[in-house]
Amino acid sequence: MSFESSIPESVLVPFAPGSVWLAGSGPGDPGLLTLLALQGLRQADVIVHDALVAERIMALASPSARLEFAGKRGGRPSAHQDDITNRLIELAKEGHRVLRLKGGDPFVFGRGGEEAQALAAHGIPFRIVPGITSGIAGPAYAGIPATHRDTNQAVILATGHSLGGGPDWRALAATKAPLILYMGWKALPTIAAELMAGGLSADTPVGVVTEATTANQKSLVTSLGTCVADLAASGLEPPAIIVIGEMVRLRPALDWLPGQMALQNARENNG
């Protein structure tokens, strides 16, 4: 059965030669891909992909697609953003169907907006294919809801790594809204100190989820006052999502993944 015949025709959309799809691959679990992202993987001529796109997702690409790595990882040799953007324009002008595949969602700390602006300026047709962002999926896979009626009616998504020094952490602390941090690992000592200086208690719960939604996912529950030392002693490594807020206390009751993994292992062992 072909890919197209396995999905209702109403779901598929044209992927025209000379166009670019800016697509999110989600946080890592292939089951969290959208159908449009899967369509892009199966129909693209060239896939320009980031470092955080899981290998199991890349394995779904058409065998005829050309794969071009454009990953950026902190402290390692990385592609420059201008070079990536110019490559997308070049490939589209050559008449290829180009899938720009990013981890998570392209418009949530993914620089997809910058790439879309450049495509628009050069008259390149493009489509945005949102993905499930790791800031929502990672905590969910660790049993931490982004919102819960008993704990919070708002949540702030923030990056710990940005041009211009990052957010005003004391101002964010003053909102009393929980925080979900992307790329906050290296800056966590400063972030934690600034949040406490802004009024958050040292007892504020903190959850850290590494390699979220993959087979290597690990979690740590700590507090704002001890999170830096606890994380250093944990042996965990990035990439990670860091959750700061009362909803982290719900994890013991909502940590569903171990039970599901046990069921899966039992089925596999029983043949």
Score class of each variant (00 low, 15 high):
L172R: 03
V108F: 15
N152P: 03
V98D: 05
E194L: 09
A118T: 02
V108G: 10
P106D: 15
H161S: 01
Q153V: 05
I128F: 03
G165V: 05
L179D: 02
S162W: 01
H96L: 12
E114Q: 08
D168R: 03
T159C: 02
Q117W: 12
V108R: 06
R87Q: 15
I89M: 13
K176P: 01
A118L: 06
A202L: 05
G95P: 13
Q153S: 10
G103W: 13
N152L: 01
G164C: 03
H161W: 00
A92W: 12
L99E: 13
A193C: 09
A137Y: 05
L99G: 14
S134Y: 06
L179F: 12
A173M: 00
N86I: 11
P189L: 05
P130A: 04
P139G: 08
A197P: 15
G143N: 06
R87E: 08
W185Q: 04
G184W: 02
H96V: 11
H161I: 01
A177L: 00
V208F: 15
L101W: 12
G103T: 11
A193E: 10
P167E: 00
G199K: 03
D168S: 00
A197Y: 14
A142H: 06
A174C: 01
A116T: 09
L157W: 00
A197E: 13
R100Y: 11
V98S: 07
G198L: 01
H148I: 05
L188S: 07
G138T: 06
L157A: 01
A121Q: 15
Q117P: 11
G110D: 08
L163G: 04
P205K: 03
A158V: 08
D203Y: 10
G95Q: 14
K186N: 00
G131R: 13
A92L: 12
P178H: 05
K102R: 11
L88Q: 14
A158Y: 05
A173G: 04
L99K: 09
L91S: 14
H161V: 01
L91I: 15
T151R: 11
G104P: 09
P145W: 15
E114S: 06
Q117C: 11
G160S: 04
R97I: 11
Q153M: 10
W169K: 03
P139L: 12
D168E: 00
H148D: 07
G95D: 13
A192V: 06
G110A: 14
T147A: 07
V98K: 07
T190E: 02
G184I: 02
A202D: 09
W185L: 04
L200Y: 13
Y141M: 02
A171Y: 00
G103A: 11
L163H: 08
H148M: 07
I180N: 01
G160A: 02
I180K: 00
A92H: 15
A197T: 12
L179R: 00
E114L: 04
G143L: 14
A121N: 13
S162V: 02
K186W: 01
S162F: 01
A121P: 13
T151N: 11
T133G: 07
A192D: 03
L163V: 03
I89T: 13
G110N: 14
H96I: 11
I144L: 12
I180C: 00
G113Q: 15
A174L: 01
I136L: 10
K176Q: 09
A140D: 07
G165D: 04
A154Q: 15
I180D: 00
E94A: 08
G138E: 09
V108M: 14
